[in-house]
Design a protein around this nucleic acid. Structure first.
Lengths: 112, 112
DNA sequence: AAACATACATAGTAAATCTATGTATGTCAA
DNA sequence: TTGACATACATAGATTTACTATGTATGTTT
């Protein structure tokens, strides 16, 4: 089970990344994350929806209600311009931390 | 400025990694992290000490007071066996999330 | 002797989280 | 046709967490 902290740190970049290439809605995002992670990340809807609402409040994404052919209503989220910029920043930060960790994991002499 | 979440998620693996190869103490750990990250990660002592205390309570690290040649007292932390195992787990989890993000960043077709 | 760097500690406020719960509807098998 | 299950979204509020602000102490430099 992934730590709370790691889930928290990766949720925002993951969601924004998923929405970068196509609109999606809560339920589908959960499935996408599960699939992408090889079944290791299993988000609950109760944790995702508040995050989506927050990202929407921050104007990084925006929502539209649509009705699918089967008649089911879904709230589709789309990445806004500000969201794209935020994603770039998230990506930069993640890579910074990742390279710091990688450095120490691959080369112990970096500590001296 | 790195997000709170990212700092939280990386603090534990970073500290354990630093202690894997040599004993260290709070003040020095802060400097090591700063140096390793190219100046991008600047931890405050107020956030680090509670984490060290927690890791100690979890028996992942253990502390010994020592007096340096200049007469200054320092609390040196050392990685315990359980800490090594915990680090391996942290590393595995981090890499899992990292590869999920990397996958989506490098290959948009993975979403389809 | 003042300023600064080194070194550790924690109370308590401030904030975030996400579990538990609720609503609603479509599909399919028995 | 009804019960089970999957789909789909929402949020109050208890619980947990984080870390700022503050305090102590001492060595070094100017």
């Amino acid at each position: 089970m992934l730590s709370k902290d790691l889930v928290a740190a990766s949720a925002k970049p993951l969601i924004l990344s998923i929405l970068l290439y196509k609109e999606s809605y809560g339920y589908e995002i959960i499935q996408t994350v599960k699939k992408l992670s090889g079944g290791n990340m299993e988000w609950t809807d109760g944790m995702l929806y508040p995050i989506l609402h927050r990202l929407e409040a921050q104007e990084l994404i925006e929502a539209t209600w649509k009705t699918s052919e089967e008649g089911r209503k879904r709230k589709y989220y789309r990445l806004k311009k500000e969201g794209k910029a935020a994603l770039a920043k998230e990506q930069k930060h993640w890579n910074l931390v990742n390279s710091t960790l990688t450095k120490i994991w691959e080369d112990r002499t970096c500590l001296t």
